[in-house]
Nucleic acid binder design. Structure first.
Length: 485
DNA sequence: ATGTCC
């Protein structure tokens, strides 16, 4: 006879989400083991507690479960906060646009709307900008310091880059192409793959923030399963050649060509849930005219604002941990350790101080932090180089730079116009091996990165150039078309 | 970006 209640038995009486299952299961194990309750008696008791959690919040044994049930009930309750309606300013705050001739009018109109928000302080549009949801991708927006706009951070909170540099000659890439390709196949997981793989241990879940809100507790199990996985769309893990052109302490190595690993991904389902949940709450609390409705904000001086801030920052730490898992697995596979690691968020918000001394909240949605001396990575495409950069601290750009080349073609247009043979040809011409990847991520959907970089000479200094050689992305979307090799 | 339509 089992001495514990299994998840199916608990689910049958209505204990469904992961955080509740954990608490109820743990409690059951000890109470049944020490014979305080029989299984049947405890199930009956749980049913009663679910109906009436308030009656058990001061019960020594069951307070934790009762509180958890109560917090679950209030999670999606409509916020009691005051609904406030705002008008846009009639004047649009001026902002610089880098590479304006290659940026769509859509993206500019979206940025204009952001610069009419009553909470806007400053902004800038990066040379890879294109239209997004709310703030354009490539948009930088500084607001009053107590304001946070979920859609100016983006749905993939802490989408970020991570580069590992190995003290291994780049010749290794040609000599061991097959082996390196196999390592990517064995040690990277995209989309929903790999949720049941063996995990490396990680201290990320020791953070107390995982216990901070009901939503975060509820998402923890999913986050554990997805730790160290990549997403879909433009996410990738790739081996390539890092050509160090400036000797600098940050890159540790002398000028030359080295093996390097570059990854692009974010906070997976965890961050997406935080983002959509608080975007809804922001839209309920902050009513704005139609052209700015997706720029609704939360005030950090409210409970909801504080919760988003905690969730966003935890998503940042989680996304970073995901990259580190990927890099650890692949470093182990090649039997080496990186001598340097460069990384940066490009969908995030930070409390910063402008050059004139004003305290602000800087939202970067598809923009690389480029404060003075701050290291970052600006990827190009599968067939164009990415760049290791050091920020110059340029104040007009709000210490920011582009987060890549930027899209030239929308996903839908790319899927209609680019063919599989065209993609194969361009990869063959450039000597790039691709595992997975759909036509809407083909290199020709992106702007010319060299041109994009030419617009940001005042914003960043290039220290090294990364050329992708073996790329892994999510498999093509099976609903649109198959991948036949 | 997201178990991409609850």
């Amino acid at each position: 006879m089992s001495n514990k209640l299994n998840n199916n038995e608990l689910k049958a009486i209505g204990i469904k989400d992961e955080a509740l299952l954990e608490v109820a299961g743990r409690l059951a194990k000890s109470l049944i083991k020490n014979k305080t309750y029989t299984k049947e008696a405890l199930l009956a008791f749980y049913k009663e507690l679910l109906k009436n959690p308030d009656s058990y919040t001061s019960n020594e044994l069951f307070a934790e479960l009762a509180e958890e049930v109560k917090s679950r009930a209030s999670l999606f309750k409509k916020s009691q906060a005051i609904v406030q309606t705002f008008e846009l300013r009639t004047n649009t705050l001026a902002y610089p646009i880098y590479g304006t001739e290659h940026i769509s009018d859509d993206a500019k109109h979206q940025m204009n709307a952001a610069m009419q928000l009553p909470v806007a302080v400053a902004g800038a549009l990066m040379p890879d900008a294109h239209s997004g949801y709310g703030l354009p991708i490539g948009g930088v927006l500084a607001t009053e310091p107590n304001i946070i706009i979920p859609y100016a951070v983006g749905v993939d909170i802490a989408c970020r880059m991570c580069l590992s540099v190995f003290d291994v000659n780049a010749i290794f890439l040609d000599q061991k192409t097959k082996l390196l390709k196999q390592h990517l196949l064995d040690h990277t997981y995209f989309g929903l793959d790999g949720e049941n793989r063996d995990q490396l241990s990680d201290t990320i879940f020791d953070l107390p923030e995982w216990k901070s809100t009901a939503q975060i507790r509820q998402l923890r199990y999913k986050a554990e399963k997805q730790l160290g996985t990549s997403g879909t769309g433009n996410h990738f893990v790739e081996w390539g050649i890092l050509d160090i052109t400036e000797q600098t302490p940050e890159l540790k190595l002398p000028k030359g060509k080295y093996l390097a690993l570059l990854s692009h991904s974010g906070s997976r389902g965890f961050g997406a849930n935080i983002a959509t949940h608080y975007s809804k709450i922001a839209a309920e609390q902050t009513k704005l005219p139609r052209e700015a409705q997706h720029l609704a904000w939360l005030d950090l001086n409210t409970e909801e604002g504080q919760e988003y801030w905690i969730g966003m920052n935890l998503a940042g730490d989680y996304a970073s941990a995901c990259h580190h898992q990927i890099h650890r697995r692949l470093a182990q596979a090649i039997g080496s350790k990186p001598v340097a690691m460069i990384e940066n968020h490009h969908n995030f918000a930070w409390k910063e101080t402008l050059a004139d001394g004003r305290e602000v909240m800087v939202h970067r949605k598809g923009a690389t932090p480029a404060g003075k001396g701050v290291m970052g990575i600006i990827p190009g495409s599968m067939t164009q180089p990415g760049f290791v950069v050091r920020g110059k601290g340029d104040s007009s750009s709000i210490c920011s730079a582009s987060h890549g080349a930027g899209r030239l073609l929308s996903r839908s247009k790319a899927l209609k116009t680019i063919t599989r043979p065209e993609l194969k040809q361009v990869l063959a011409d450039k000597g790039v091996t691709l595992i997975g990847g759909d036509l809407d991520e083909a290199p020709m959907v992106y702007k010319d990165i060299n041109q994009v970089m030419s617009y940001q000479n005042d914003l960043v200094e290039v220290l090294a150039r990364f050329t992708p050689k073996i790329v892994r992305m999510a498999d093509p979307d099976k609903r649109t078309k198959g991948w036949e090799g």
